[in-house]
Amino acid sequence: MKPGLLTTSAELSKTDPRVKLIAAKIKKENARPEALIEILHTAQNAYGYLPMNVLSYITHSLHLPPSRVYAAVTFYHFFSLKSKGEHTCLVCTGTACYVKGAQAILHELEKQFGIKAGHVTADQKLGIQVARCVGACGLAPVVVLDDVVEAKVNADQIIQEIRAKIS
């Protein structure tokens, strides 16, 4: 095996509370390989994304092949290998929101902040994402701003709120 590719927890600070959290989760699950997704959830929640050294750490702890872990991570939309930005604006483009003009809101946001959905601004302040349905169809169109669901929104109002957050 070539050195340096499967980094261990050495690169992670043992005192980092996030690392402790993941370590505790792995212990709770008895390092069972089938608990991979549960453990990835913990890591994703702790970091907001899955840094490569964290993935390496999990891979090692569960004795899984790296390819198997990477395959699972890239399959599920919930997991991200890139930072999602300091603030996130998630536009629901589910059917109900779509019928009520979510696309226009998304286009306006993309135009205003100069990034496409799925990307983060150069200063890492804002990430725009789309969801296929957040399940709040009765309140369409819906935007989730930093985990707060905003109902029956219009583009101007959301843009103002974002500006207030990132300025």
Binding site: M1, K2, L5, L6, P65, P66, S67, Y70, A71
Partner: peptide, 14 residues
Amino acid sequence: IISDFNTPWGESGT
């Protein structure tokens, strides 16, 4: 198809 963590094949550890 990927090898390891989408690592170049030549750098694969497995």
